[in-house]
Every structure is written in C-alpha cells, then in structure tokens.
Nucleic acid binder design. Sequence first.
RNA 1: UGGGGUGUCGCCAAGCGGUAAGGCACUGGUUUUUGGUACCAGUAUUCGGGGGUUCGAAUCCCUCUACCCCAUCCA
Length: 750
Amino acid sequence: MSENKDFLRTIVEEDLKSGKYKEIVTRFPPEPNGFPHIGHAKSICINFGIASDYHGHCNLRMDDTNPTTEDTKYVEALKDAVEWLGFEWGDNVNFTSDYFSQIHDYAIELIKMGKAYVDSLTEDEIREYRGTVTEAGKRSKYAERSLEENLNLFERMKNGEFKNGEHVLRAKIDMSAANMKMRDPLLYRIRHAHHFRTGDKWCIYPMYDFAHCLSDYIEGVSHSICTLEFENNRDIYDWVLDTLGLKVSRPYQHEFARLGINYTVMSKRKLLELVEGGQVSGWDDPRLPTIAGYKRRGYTPESILNFCDQIGIAKANSMVDVAQLEFCIRDDLNTKVPRVLCVLEPLKVTIENYEGSEEIDAPYYPHDIPKDGSRKIPFSKNIYIERDDFMENPPKDYFRFTPEQPVRLRHAYIISCKEVIKDANGKIIEIKAEYYPDSKSGSDDTSGIKVKSAIQWVSAAEAKKVEIRLYDRLFKDEAPEGVEDINPDSLHIIKNALIEPAVITDKPDERFQFERQGYFYVDPIDYTDENPVFNKIVGLKDSWSKKTKVTESAPEPQAKKVQVDGEVAPMSEAQKTLFDKYSLELGLNSEVANTLARDEHLSSFYEEALSVLNNPVALANIVVNEVARELKQMQASELKFNAKQIAELVKLVDDGTISSTIAKQVFEEMAMSGENPTQIVEAKGLVQISDPSKILPIIDEIIAKNPDNVHKFKAGNTKLLGFFVGQVLKATGGKANPQVVNELVARKLK
RNA sequence: UGGGGUGUCGCCAAGCGGUAAGGCACUGGUUUUUGGUACCAGUAUUCGGGGGUUCGAAUCCCUCUACCCCAUCCA
C-alpha cells in the first residue's frame, strides 16, 4: 500500500477507527452477462485489494437478477478473471439468486408497512407518470390499494397468474423527488423466463435497486463500492435499508470513477458489437481490452495488477493513456523473460569468407538481468537478417548495416557489406558480406572494428519458420464511438518469420523478448509444433522509429481558452435595498454585501450580530465566510452557536486578544461545542503572543533547523517566507501573532 | 429547465490554510554487443475563470463556466 491512500481506503480507515465496523467486508458484484474487461479488473483490485489490506474479506457475487441476459458461461469467465488476477473469494461464489426468497420476504414486509404497492400501469404509462427532470411526476391510482389487495396481488404475481408487464411492485417514496430514481422505483417485475440457476422457480425478479442493497446487507458487507453512475441510486439503497430498519452494521455505498483507456472501448454493449459483428475473432481476441483478450495476448496478471495500482482511484471521469498499460507489461516482462533472436522480414545475407558451421553459446538474459541460462545458436555462411536493418542510402544517424558501415551479428561476428544484389524491380534480395574472424562476440580484442549496432539474425539452415501476429490499437480514434472508428490495420500476420531453433525445440518459456522487436507470447490456442504461432504482446520502447517520424503529430500549441462569464441572476427589489444599505451605509465591499443581500439566512444572522457589536465590516466578513460554510451543511436552527457569540468572537479579535488565525480555531470549536468564545480562549490559553522577545528565539530555532530553505530563500525564493511563518506558528500552537512573525522572519532572513 | 457529481502538467493522480508529491509520456546525459534496461538530470511561479476572506488560499466563501450521470419493467 502506498503512502498516499485513495479516498476509499481513507473512508475505510475512518470507519474502522470510529468502530463503525469490526471487520471490512467488500464484494465484487458483476452481472454475468458478458466477459469481464480491464474495467472489471480495476473493480476487482479495489474490492479484493481493500479487503486484504484491512484483513477483511471480499465476496465474489454474481448479480443475477435478470434471467433474460445472463448465462453460466459468463459466470465462468468472471471466476477465471478473478482467479487469474490472483484473488481468492473463499469457499463459494455467491449469487443474488441465492437470496431471492429473503428478498421476497423483505418485499412483503415493505408492503405490510405501506411502503410498497402493486402498480398495474402499463410500461408506457409508468414512464409518462414519472415526469421529467424538471417536472414532478404523478402517482399511479393503484398506489392507493389496500394492504390486503397488495399482498394478494403480489402473491399472485409470484404464483405466475399474470403475464409479463401486467403488474410491478413499486416502492412508495415520492413522485416529485428531485432525484428521478426516487420516484417510486420498481422493486419487482414479472419475467416468465428460465433463470440459469433458479430455473423456473420464480417468475418475479427483484430489480437491481432492491436486490443489491439487501444482498450486501445479507452478506454482511461493510463497504459497497461501485462506479459513479450509481450515485443517484444511493438514495434508494439507503431508503430500502433504513425503511426496513436494517441498521446493525449495515453497508454504505461509495462510488469511484470507472476506468477508461484511450483507443479502445470498454462498454459491454460495444464490446459485444465487435464480437458479434466479426470485427474481432471472439471475446479473447488479443486486441480487446477483455481479461480473456489480455490473457491471450500474453499480458501477465502482475502487469494488470500493477496498472490498476498505478492509475489510482478517484471520482473524476478520466481516460488513461494506453502507454501506461504498455509500460506495466514491459516493466514486468523485462526482468522475467528470455531474450531470443527472431527475424520478422528476412533478408538473405551470404558470408562469403565463412566456411563450415559452428554453435555459439548465448545467454538468455542480458548482463543487467540477474538470471542464468543459455542456449546454442547455430552459425553458418547463409543467414537472414531483418530487412529494416540494412539500408543502401541511410540517413546520417542510422546505426545499422550499410554498404559503408559494418554491423555486429548479435552474439556472433561483425560483418561488412561487399555487394548488394537486387531484382529487376530494384528491390534488394541479397547481401554478399564478409565477416571478421577475430570479431567473435565476447572475445573481440583484435578486429579493431567499431560498430554502432548489433542486430538479430538466424542461420538459414536451422531457423524455424513461425507465424507472428502483430497487433496495433483496435481503433484509430482516441475516444472511439464505434465500428466506424476501427483501425483497419490492427492485425498484421507474418507467416514466414524465422526464429532460432532453440525457441521451438527447447521451449525455454512461453513469453520471450525477440531482441530489438518486443515481447511475444506463444498463442495458447493456435500454437502447434508444426505451425508455431506467436502473439506480439507489446513492442520495445523505440526511440529510433520515433525520431524517424517526427512529422507524425506536431503538438499544436493550444491557445488558452478564454472563459466567458455568464450572467448573474438579477436581484429582487428587497435584495437591492439590502445591498445598498450594506454597501453604502455600512461600507461593506460589494462582493460581501452582495452575498449577504442574496441570502436571507445570512443577512438575518448578520443583522442580529450587528445589534450586539458595532463592527459591520468584520462581522460581515465572518458571517459571509465562516457562518456561511456551516449554514451550507445545516439549517439555521441547527447551528450550535448564535449571533451574539459571533459578535463576541469578533470583539476578541478587535481588541487584539486573539489573532485571526486563532479566531478560526475558536470558531471551529464553537461550531462544534457551542461554547462561548471567551471561555474557549481561556480554557485553551489561546491568547496571542505578540512580544518579539518571545517569538525571536523560536524563529532562530526554525532557521537553525532549516539551513537549506534559508539558503533557497536568500537565493530568491521568497515564497518560502510562508514556510517559515508556518513553522513558527506551528511551534507556538498558532498563538504567535502572524503579522509580527512575518515581520520578524523577513528581517531575520534579509 | 431540476437533482447528483467532477475540473491540479500532454495522460493518470496526491494534496484538505503554511516549500505544488509520485507514476506514465516527453527532453537531455551516463552505462550498455538490444536505438532495450538501469541510472542521473530537466520538465505546473500555478491548481477551470473571475471576485472575496486571511499575514498567507489549490485548500474557506461567493459567482460564472465546462464536462459526466439520472426520466430501462437493465445493472
């Protein structure tokens, strides 16, 4: 766990500290109606991660309340994903359907409380009656049914006496609630459908909003963590549990922002579209952001875990750069995986002065990876190199093989070009070369040739032919809408790549670094010894190709966008009169007068304080800034303090007893306890210190402790003044007169 | 037009009244028989805009603005 914890962990720690929960229980609650993607991985990491960080437990629960969309195969995919990521859910996978009868009982309880009713409006009518975001809805006439009738109807719904859509069970809340979700939400609907677990036992199914909170409660969940789009549902969550009186250690819902990654899509709907539309080969297509896709592509669970850890958890909608994910997999594989030689686009090279053959012993890992292991690479007269690694007319900073520039064959000899052979179209088809017998890798003391690069190669006779699948981003648009943004070149298959034989015969691993190319993975489905197939997981970081295409996207300098101020609502006559009085008669600045005049709670509070103490400006400032904050959180009547106490506080500042810094402290104390300012000041000994002879020694001490900052300050970093003042204030418990401190510090450091 | 959220470097993201963390990306440099890795260095006078309070504001107050979510018998 990092030092800076996310907001969820902060909440969890507070709840643990306050004793709200004895144990932390979370849950990962997907609906089994699709394959999990990396967004699920984030949720898995959060829920299982928090549980394990605080020695609690995390349930895996299938939220299977909609029989028409769900299936066992998705349950399996979900379990696979969690398992693959390395988390454990205990003995059983839970299912919301396990709780159907309990949930049903709670529904009956609500009916008996008069808090739920059977509605018989049509689907269209229900929608119409719900109103709009700006207009209140109206209640269905069926809301007035008697308890008995509701009970009877609901029983008959359950018994299958009605068709789909004939009736629903609804919570009786508020048809004019500002939160649309609270306008008598549906609790149950009739669905004559076969459920993959409960079969035909039920024909009524609870809605998400009813089932989820109750399932959490039944499982003893403490923190119900979900994504932002459920923020509006939190009110129902609380309503159901509160109304049913489910209080003891009940769960509370907290929301975080779902994961977005650029150049891909993450919604189940869009993913399904790609799978069904044949744009990809299936849910496990390596280009997809599904767990199955990453797995098949060759990503490791560690890399995904790491990624989830790096991106953090917050509430701002965001889109993470794929580069971050790619970094994670490179970073993981770098230390784990053997290096091997593979030529993707072979170019024939004949070493004319080499006869016979030899085997070169080559380590699997570079000098900086502390791992052992090596293999034999056959070397001979006829080899292949990468087509890209030879250029007849190279740019000046080209480090590889050219007619003038020799190059090292990795782990082997240095060669130089003797002749370039082309076909009728001018395409290079072969290089005739010579090698330097003294230049063998590791023992090259005598050749005296300096090369700028070592390139991969394979011996023609022993190399194995392999299929390589190269993947690019699936979409060309950073924030793709759908199939229209698909990148037509996202898959590139190379049928005739050549690889050194040890990879195929010795099988030292499943994942490899093909030197200078990238990381590759043995395709778990299509790989056979006759037709070996490798998936490219990710390329190596490549500062060369970046350099060569500088033109790609010149970062256009973004003009700072000009903000246009909107219009402020006009004041009423009464407000205007008040404003004039405040600004003209009492001399308040117009901003303060404005705020005061527009808020009648504030202004009446202010007037009252003013009748006690004649200091209009100071009073106004504290009312507008401090009292206003308290009033945002509660009603005026709930305030622990009154106007008289505010006046008292202002007076203390006025006569110099306390500084404004202390005043803040006193205010907070007063807001909490309702005690008088004078009492608080006395009880805590908060009288301010203005005597320089008392402050000076403290300043000296602080200066002595922070020589670096003193130096920086003297070098011109004047904002450090605040740092020193802060330190002195801290040392005196806030009691030092900040103005005096400022002055003294400035003089000291001059 | 109502309600609920969110705006801190190109992308994520700490920070909760006293020196603008960190990661990715980027730019230099060092090491290197991978144009990789590792290492070093650089990169926000400023926190969506404007006002106010304060000795001091990303943090408190007012206001404007942009974006996201909510009117499925989906979850």
